[in-house]
């Protein structure tokens, strides 16, 4: 399950347990879960994630390989959902396994910062009576660039 794209919900805890059970030789695991955000002053009803399947798979496989090579990770896993999601639903999960914590943290950070601007997913937020495509942020480009 090194890279998985799926429309079905996933259970972050179950994924972590499965990942850790294969952690031979590791001293550190880092897990990141991205969640559909909705706040009281700006509530969203749902979020639709459109993606370009073949390019998304390729970009995430390449990104995983790059992270493993760059930070000498023992393993890395990326799970990303597409389709319709609701507030509180997990969107993405990134897990890294390394001999020591710094590499595990850096690897997970690198994957998320790079994924945001290079994996072909697009979020559309549905609010009461209106839907709107989420705009890309310059801060996301800056986050990607800091690993260049």
């Amino acid at each position: 399950m090194s890279v998985t794209l799926q429309s079905e919900p996933f259970d972050p805890g179950a994924l972590v347990n499965a990942f850790l059970s294969s952690s031979q030789g590791a001293g550190a695991a880092v897990t990141f879960t991205g969640i559909v955000r909705s706040s009281e002053d700006d509530p969203i009803v749902s979020m639709t994630l459109e993606h370009y399947p073949s390019l998304a798979k390729r970009q995430l496989l390449d990104l995983r390989d790059a992270a493993i090579a760059r930070f000498a990770l023992i393993d890395a896993t990326i799970i990303h959902r597409f389709g319709t999601l609701y507030p509180g639903d997990p969107i993405v999960q990134v897990m890294t396994l390394a001999p020591h914590r710094q590499a595990a943290f850096d690897g997970a950070n690198f994957i998320m910062d790079t994924l945001k601007t290079t994996a072909p997913f697009w979020k559309k937020e549905e609010r009461a009576g209106a839907s709107e495509w989420v705009k890309a942020k310059q801060s996301d480009d800056a986050a990607t660039a800091r690993w260049a």
Binding site: Y52, M112, L115, K116, A119, W122, K123, W133, K135, A136
Partner: peptide
């Protein structure tokens, strides 16, 4: 060829 807006995943 694919054309699309800046990506907003994650």
């Amino acid at each position: 060829v694919a054309l699309f807006p800046p990506m907003t995943g994650g």
